[in-house]
Design a protein around this nucleic acid. Structure first.
Lengths: 187, 187
DNA sequence: GTCTATACGAAGATAGAC
DNA sequence: GTCTATCTTCGTATAGAC
């Protein structure tokens, strides 16, 4: 935030990268600090130098995800409201999906209970609720809200559908895009 | 299978019921044998009398899920192939969703890595692949396969979308049904 | 910043009495 | 079938040297 500082915590970034990978593959609870430190080629203790604990790592992971949703919210605020805003917003979200976000989604998917727990305390939950309320208005009926939410979640759904399948990332994103369009078709 | 036996394992069923609940809420890895036995009002040791271990419990849970997919496969085999079979089959699946299956889906969703692990060894993975191959034929391109799979998975997706939302089960099923229809619309 | 060593509790699982 | 120990392993976390 305060511009230039010393280079310093490159290790931190590396830890986060590997943690995201392992937590996604084996789940948060299924990954021990041991596993993580071994994958990083350092000892557990060194890990504790960089992060207060396992919990701090997942929180840091979440924070970087949060930024993307904030960007979406800002974009929505700058748009003209209207019946096609939902599709435009959802497609914008889907089309801006990159490697990191895919990993984040796989992660979220692989860690349902953990995410729910963090949501309960922190403020994870509601990131998208906020977006949907701004698009549909505060009085939209639940079925519409659910359908809108599903239109945003198509990448996650396509990822799920592709599990165990020889599907490329491009296949997944294409399926997601098509689904978003289908789910936001006018009645 | 061999018809009437002594009443016996009513406890087994009770264990499975509670296990499904806890594994779904807290995740498989996040639920200890302790937690489970306490929720059941018995000791860990008693649990071990009924099941060989934690792993055996989850396997039993999976087996009962398997039956429903088999039923779907059989139904598909009895149908006339054609371009609308996908929609009919997917709607049949969605419309036959009951309490138990919803729990099973929440469970699967809450336990991604565990499910993947079981899939790798046992034969979990591929239950739906089989159905989709029978419907679309063995040569269907990947994007079509993914989309078809997503059409079956709408309940799961709607459940995900409804997390943290004051949505009723009816809302969820309605959203799922609408999504299945949208996803199986003819080009 | 990274290491060795270790404390401490919780987890899965078993033995054997009732 | 259910209980009371008890074993062993693994997990998070800390102390303190280098």
């Amino acid at each position: 935030m305060t511009a230039t500082r010393r280079a310093g915590s490159e290790t931190r970034a590396e830890i986060l990268r590997v943690a995201l990978e392992l937590f996604t593959e084996r789940g948060f609870e299924g990954t021990s600090i041991r596993d993580l430190s071994e994958a990083l080629g350092m000892t557990k203790s060194s890990l504790y130098y960089h992060f207060e604990g396992k919990e701090a790592i997942i929180q840091a992971l979440l924070a970087s995800r949060r930024a993307e949703v904030d960007e979406l919210l800002e974009w929505i605020d700058g748009q003209e409201p209207g019946p096609e805003l939902l599709r435009r917003a959802a497609l914008r979200w889907v089309d801006s999906t990159g490697r990191e976000r895919i990993l984040g989604m796989r992660f979220a998917h692989a860690n349902g209970p953990t995410m729910a727990r963090l949501a309960a305390q922190g403020g994870t939950r509601g990131w998208f609720d906020e977006a949907i309320t701004r698009i549909l208005g505060p009085d939209a009926p639940m079925p519409s809200r659910l359908r809108a939410r599903m239109a945003f979640d198509t990448v996650s759904a396509a990822l799920f559908a592709a599990q165990g399948q020889p599907a490329s990332e491009a296949d997944v994103l294409a399926a997601a895009r098509a689904a978003t369009i289908a789910l936001t078709a006018p009645d």
